[in-house]
């Protein structure tokens, strides 16, 4: 064998050994258990904290409001559409005050006139329909067709 190879072959062997050793040490736990990924990551993704509690959670305490809503056009809507995420409040009712949006624009997100959603939902021209008043001054958002005087 030529003297060059006598030196090079062991050198490359050491290199490959070090590479395999490094690889052995660096592959994280649970990698490849189910596929080419760290399987523990599935559990980590499951463990993230929730922000939205869900309608049923709200109804556990606020059953009166939930019942009230069922009698009108907003039946079936989730409370958190308007009141925002409520998980913090659900876990500790004293903390985590929810929002009570009273701006016309908020109602307009669904109900402002837009030709794209014509025939799909009740629409109001915000510039034309009592522009100086808040929607909720007349419409109870839980019972929208009950108009206050």
């Amino acid at each position: 064998m030529p003297p060059q190879l006598k030196t090079l072959i062991p050198l490359f062997a050491i290199f490959i050994f070090l590479f395999l050793l490094g690889r052995y040490l660096l592959v994280p736990e649970s990698f490849g258990e189910q596929g080419h990924y760290r399987f523990n990551s599935v559990a980590e993704n499951k463990d993230l904290s929730l922000q939205y509690a869900g309608r049923d959670a709200c109804a556990e305490c606020h059953d009166d409001k939930a019942l009230e809503m069922e009698s009108d056009m907003h039946a079936g809507l989730s409370c958190e559409i308007c009141h925002g995420p409520g998980m913090v409040h659900y876990d500790n009712p004293k903390a985590g005050q929810l929002i009570i949006p009273d701006q016309r624009e908020h109602c307009g997100l669904c109900h402002a006139t837009n030709l794209t959603r014509v025939d799909k939902i009740a629409q109001v021209d915000l510039a034309d329909h009592n522009p100086d008043q808040k929607c909720i001054e007349c419409h109870n958002p839980h019972l929208p067709w009950e108009i206050a005087e």
């Binding site: 929730l50 939205y52 869900g54 079936g76 809507l77 989730s78 958190e80 559409i81 995420p85 669904c110």
Partner: peptide
Amino acid sequence: KTTACVEVCPTH
């Protein structure tokens, strides 16, 4: 639970 987007979709 369902996803946040499904939870808040008013028109299903």
